[in-house]
Design a protein around this nucleic acid. Sequence first.
DNA 1: TCGTGATATTAGAATTTTCGAATATCACGA
DNA 2: TCGTGATATTCGAAAATTCTAATATCACGA
Lengths: 109, 109
Amino acid sequence: MAAVIENYWVTVLKALAHPTRLQIVIELLQGTKCVNDIHDLLPASQANISQHLTVLRNARIVDFAQDGSQRCYYVCRPELVAGVLALLRNEQPERKGSQPSVLATHNQR
Amino acid sequence: MAAVIENYWVTVLKALAHPTRLQIVIELLQGTKCVNDIHDLLPASQANISQHLTVLRNARIVDFAQDGSQRCYYVCRPELVAGVLALLRNEQPERKGSQPSVLATHNQR
DNA sequence: TCGTGATATTAGAATTTTCGAATATCACGA
DNA sequence: TCGTGATATTCGAAAATTCTAATATCACGA
């Protein structure tokens, strides 16, 4: 039953799990940008950025507003994306911290 | 400069962006489990689950404590993982909501 | 030390993702 | 209507991921 929902979650996570796409959403969180703006900021071809934007759009992470011949992209789930980024920023990959009482919650078989 | 950090972020996101691995961390958030426990819960082979656990371990999302011949796995960044899941749960993929003032923040080129 | 349960690793095929090159579409002004 | 700037799509090839089957390792008790 949760399978459908989790498929969507996986789609969202997969969409964010790429260096270029993560950069795109980080930039878009700063403000709406058209494809050429993004192209100027990132080391990728226009076609490639367009492809990545399609992936992000299919995951319903970004959307765009047509502005003449330009498409102004924006993050349509800012709380989600900013939230995930905030969580990642708070992580210190090196700090080990206090580990949970591992064996306590484990039912021996 | 931020590239190194974001590489780690992408590693984390990529590790979570798989149905089986997402299921594994969801289960592990409920409590420490050994490989066989996970194997009983999910429709995947032992070898495959072991492989997925390696991916999660490389991303520093899970770790294990050796307990005799068993390895008790647990989420070693519960705030991060639970946080991401909470954000995903709060999302209604269908709701459109109020869109930001798209054109306002966009510098015309 | 041998057997066994628990887990990991390896190898290779199948699938998916990614990207560049080329081309198509689309909006608009001359 | 034509040209052009802006963006999307298509097509393969290359790279990465995923899975299965087989095998290896490891801890422990008889």
